[in-house]
């Protein structure tokens, strides 16, 4: 059995200022193996974050089930950690303090906790900045802290919601490569939401393409590019054909969006 089993998942939200309910995500079936790196792409508003937050245990399911290692997800747990789109660093804590946050919540004891935090800060290359506060860091550095905080609690599954979404293209590429380097060392199961097609291919063992109205899975694409990967792979033929395929998918979605706009 796969590590993560999502069966017939549906999540409804209430529309603001009315009692109308709509499905943000519906009929989602997905299996993820242990140690697999899965990226999720799809146009804005198709329910990517909702799906990820459901696996995190941060939203209530309306239908279906999510199981991790055979156990039903009913809320957040130490087997999962989330890297949020906005770094969500506590501004009154230093880099070290922020990385310690999850460890404190999971009741690690003092000595281990400090050592573990420093180790994670080293891992993301921020040793010299451990006493800095978030407002003294660049966007890329904040996302490193965000990742270190999630890795620190040693989760089995790492859930990442567009962690590099707010970064410039170059920083984004560097962060992606580094994330792979870290992931290859620890082989955690990873679920990674992104808007960026290249990023989706570069990182993934498997790409989940989502469509909208309601959010559903259109296709799951296996990526058989060899690992370890570096930027050279971006120019390979396999990469090109994957990119073409994904583009076509997303363009389809875009044109249907256009249509909605014109009708309205």
């Amino acid at each position: 059995m796969a590590q993560i089993e999502i069966r017939d998942l549906g999540i409804d939200y209430r529309k603001p200022k009315s009692n109308e309910v709509f499905s943000a995500v519906d009929n989602v079936e997905l299996s993820i193996e242990k140690g697999e790196f899965v990226t999720i792409v799809g146009s804005s508003g198709c329910g990517k974050s909702t799906l990820l937050m459901a696996v995190a245990g941060l939203v209530n399911l309306s239908r279906g089930s999510i199981k991790i290692d055979g156990k039903q997800v009913t809320g957040p747990g130490p087997d999962r950690a989330v890297v949020f789109q906005e770094a969500s660093l506590l501004p009154w804590r230093s880099v070290r303090g922020n990385v310690k946050f999850g460890l404190e919540m999971q009741r690690w004891n003092g000595g281990d906790l400090n050592e573990r935090a420093m180790q994670m800060i080293r891992l993301v290359g921020l040793s010299r900045f451990s006493d800095y506060h978030p407002h003294q860091l660049s966007g890329g550095m904040r996302q490193r802290v965000n990742i270190a905080r999630a890795l620190a609690v040693d989760p089995d599954v790492l859930l990442m919601d567009e962690p590099f979404g707010a970064l410039d293209a170059q920083t984004r590429e560097i962060m992606g490569t580094e994330l792979l380097r870290i992931w290859e060392r620890h082989k955690k199961t990873a679920l990674f939401v992104t808007h960026d097609i290249d990023e989706a291919i570069f990182l993934a063992d498997k790409i989940v393409v989502m469509g909208r109205n309601p959010g559903h899975i259109k296709e799951v694409i296996k990526v058989d590019l060899p690992r370890p990967r570096d930027e050279a792979i971006l120019d390979s033929d396999d990469f090109h054909s994957l990119r073409k395929r994904l583009r076509a998918h997303l363009a389809e979605d875009m044109s249907s969006m256009q249509l909605v706009k014109e009708v309205a």
Binding site: G57, L58, P76, S88, F101, M105, Q106, V153
Partner: peptide, 12 residues
């Protein structure tokens, strides 16, 4: 900030 609350909940 609700983002902080959600972050904290995600760590249990």
């Amino acid at each position: 900030d609700p983002r902080f609350l959600r972050m904290a909940r995600s760590f249990g």
